[in-house]
């Protein structure tokens, strides 16, 4: 199975968020899901995560800004961005601002997990 890790999912679409959390947990990945940037920052303050998967378009918030705030609190925490096809430009901006990768919606879950694992592995290697 997977190397155990904890993931924080940030997406304003509740149905998508809950299903995604459920599916990841189904695969044994410890997952917390939040809908806003503020909630995400609060969760990061409360507990440790190995990776953040965040939508670039959050209701009323600039996803890249949220990511930058997360990075301010936890500079080494890898962030993967979720993006619609139309928001690829924003995702590229996000990559420049420190995101490790981006994944297109609708999500291919297996691809996402592989990307998360690679990102965490890379991060852990750099830390050790």
């Amino acid at each position: 199975m997977y190397e155990p890790f904890r993931v924080l999912i940030v997406d304003d679409e509740e149905d998508l968020l809950s299903t995604l959390v459920e599916r990841l947990e189904f695969r044994g990945i410890e997952t917390v899901g939040v809908q806003t940037g503020t909630q995400a920052l609060a969760e990061i303050a409360k507990q440790e995560f190995d990776i953040v998967v965040q939508d670039v378009k959050l209701k009323g918030e600039d996803g890249v800004e949220v990511m930058k705030r997360i990075k301010q609190v936890r500079p080494n925490l890898p962030v993967i961005l979720l993006t619609g096809h139309m928001s690829q430009e924003t995702s590229r901006e996000g990559l420049q601002a420190g995101a490790i990768d981006y994944v297109l919606k609708p999500i291919n879950l297996e691809d996402l997990i592989v990307k998360m694992q690679e990102a965490i592995a890379t991060h852990r290697r750099s830390e050790s």
Binding site: E13, L16, T19, R23, F26, G84, H85, M86, K105, I107
Partner: peptide, 28 residues
């Protein structure tokens, strides 16, 4: 087209996840 596609993309992502979840559950 872009507007329509964007609007469709989100529910499509949800359908994708729901169907994925059903598949996961059935698989187990």
């Amino acid at each position: 087209a872009a507007g329509v596609a964007h609007e469709i993309n989100n529910p499509l992502a949800i359908i994708n996840e729901k169907a994925g979840l059903i598949t996961d559950i059935l698989g187990s």
